[in-house]
Design a protein around this nucleic acid. Structure first.
Length: 563
DNA sequence: CGTGACGGCGCC
DNA sequence: AAAGGGCGCCGTCACG
């Protein structure tokens, strides 16, 4: 770990054994709130939190290297400031040389096997890489935006570790009640839950095929077709189109099967301990900058089981989501004042109806989603042209991104995260189709894959910029919540660990939604900070452009009471 | 036995 | 003619 003091001087924390580190960090944090620099929050921060030590700011070299390696705004600066050899993996099979962030961090104490004898020590290499990243930002085409992006990404790295450490308060008894109400009593080892077995029997009887295995897609599809149900897949939406006594119990069976396999008793046993659900968050895990998770399916918690997400006694959940975040972000990044005005002081979709762009709120939603995702058919495709007439700048913005993708180019978010280049296979398909004598089938395939990639880049600029807004929102909120720490009351939530006992803290983040676990008497104050942070994030990104980011916010004891 | 592709479906 | 973005995880199935 390095620390940067108020004057910008960088030095290394002396080598300390793991036991002495937290106290040393805590003392420096209290004395001077340094800007820490580390290779990877995941490597250092869990141990600090376990010892009750939180830090304010840390530059995360791993997350920032990934952004800078791809950002179009840093393309020239990257050539001027190439990675030090130790950051670059050996060429493999003629592949291009790529920054090997992971390799550096393995050297950070764990896997010295591949380290050359003359390589500098870890602290010096962290120092070198930090300097390189600063130089790239300074010499980039957008230093201000990139600086903000790297700061936001880094704070995301802190928050991800903090949320895993604190855990999401989860009541296993309530979860079991949900399971028993839906599935029946917990089956003995290996057995099917009662309700599922009953439904399966109904389906087999209705199909007159006693041997069919409903869990086998191939078997089930054949059985449906033999029974005269003309389906090409076993997807729910397609099944729903057909009239047959087997359909209703089959859909019910699939619903229960999903609950059992994804969030059933096995999930509970594996993921909930001591009243906390602790998934591993992966900030920046998606190409667009959205987060991912490893294990537990934390970003796909079905509404059905959200009853089990409950605050500790004496605590509350402050649940907030940004209403219609993506169209608002689009209006801002495209600087479309008319579109921004539709969302000011009101529900964005209602704004579209008021302005006569579409007739109903539902139509507004479908039209907007169509514009963001590149729909061209169906109701959505029919409505998009109306949107284009009302908000030409916004539509031009996403259309330009789509065209860039269709020709194999890269697009970039508001703060400077760039999309990946299409694969070699994609490019080969395009160039094959452009050769004289290419078959009609090749041309069709190439056009189709070009449009696929265009839809990706169209969505990328909006989804990625929205992810940046959300990071800024959370970062600002975290800062405010940490400042509340000083006056923390006596109410504790010890299951959250020593770093979070008694103080409000983030416990969940889902793209445009956050949950803060807070002592009940502080919940109103927390809610104020959540709202002010959203406004602050808007100003930080878009200055005085008149776009608003209203929240749906609720202070509840149980997640299912929100929204 | 493990691995990877696929269908399907949960969330935004 | 068809034309919806991003994920993770489950079970099944083919394969080595």
């Amino acid at each position: 770990m390095l620390r940067v003091d108020a004057g910008g001087a960088v030095d290394a924390l002396p080598e300390l054994d793991a036991g002495a580190l937290p106290a040393a960090v805590a003392a420096l944090e209290a004395a001077e709130s340094p800007h820490w620099v580390w290779a990877d929050a995941r490597r250092w921060y869990p141990g600090l939190l376990g010892a009750g030590v939180r830090i304010g700011r840390a530059h995360d070299l791993r997350l920032c290297a990934a952004i800078l390696a791809g950002s179009a705004a840093a393309e020239l600066a990257r050539r001027v400031h190439p990675p030090a050899p130790a950051w670059v993996s050996a060429p493999r099979g003629g592949a291009e040389r790529v920054p090997a962030a992971a390799a550096l961090f393995e050297l950070d104490g764990e896997a010295p096997a591949e380290r050359a004898p003359d390589e500098p020590a870890t602290a010096a290499r962290v120092f070198t890489e930090f300097g390189r990243q600063q130089a790239i930002v300074r010499d980039s085409a957008a230093p201000g935006a990139l600086r903000l992006l790297l700061a936001a990404e880094s704070v995301g790295g802190l928050i991800g570790v903090e949320m895993e450490s604190a855990g999401l308060p989860w009541d296993p008894g309530l979860h079991e009640r949900v399971l028993e109400e839906a599935l029946g009593p917990r089956p003995a080892h290996g057995g099917k839950p009662e309700r599922m077995a009953e439904l399966a029997a109904e389906v087999r009887t209705a199909l007159e095929q006693p041997g069919v295995n409903l869990d086998s897609q191939a078997d089930l599809l054949r059985a449906l077709q033999r029974a005269g149900i003309a389906v090409a897949t076993t997807r729910r939406w397609e099944l729903r189109e057909h009239e047959h006594p087997a359909i209703e119990p089959l859909i019910a069976y699939k619903k229960l099967s999903r609950l059992l396999t994804a969030n059933g008793w096995a999930w509970l046993a594996e993921w909930v301990q001591g009243g906390r659900f602790r998934p591993e968050y992966v900030p920046g895990g998606a190409a667009t900058g959205r987060w991912a998770t490893n294990g537990g399916g934390a970003l796909q918690l079905p509404k059905q089981v959200r009853r089990a997400l409950v605050a500790d006694p004496g605590w509350r959940l402050v649940v907030a989501d940004a209403a219609q975040l993506e169209p608002r972000v689009l209006s801002a990044i495209a600087r479309d004042p008319a579109m921004a005005a539709a969302g000011r002081g009101r529900d964005f979709y209602a704004g579209l109806v008021d302005r006569g762009v579409v007739e109903h709120r539902d139509a507004a939603k479908v039209a907007i989603l169509g514009a963001l995702y590149g729909a061209t058919s169906g109701e959505s495709g029919r409505l998009v042209p109306r949107l284009a007439r009302a908000y030409p700048r916004a539509m031009a913005h996403v259309d330009t991104a789509a065209r860039e993708g269709e020709r194999g180019g890269v697009v970039t978010t508001f703060l400077g995260r760039s999309s990946p280049s299409p694969s070699a296979g994609w490019r080969a398909l395009q160039s094959a189709a452009s050769q004289p004598g290419a078959s009609a089938a090749d041309e069709r395939r190439a056009r189709s894959s070009a449009r696929d990639w265009g839809r990706f880049t169209r969505n990328f600029v909006v989804q990625g910029s929205a992810a940046e807004w959300a990071l800024c929102w959370m970062g600002e909120l975290r800062k405010r919540l940490m400042a509340m720490d000083a006056g923390a009351p006596s109410a504790r939530a010890d299951a959250s660990g020593p770093a979070f006992a008694g103080v409000p803290h983030l416990v969940f983040f889902l793209h445009d939604e956050i949950i803060v676990h807070s002592p009940a008497e502080l919940a109103d104050e927390v809610a104020g900070h959540v709202r002010e942070s959203a406004a602050e994030a808007g100003r930080l990104l878009f200055g005085d452009f008149p776009v608003e980011f209203p929240l749906d916010l609720a202070i509840v004891e149980s997640y299912d009471q929100a929204g």
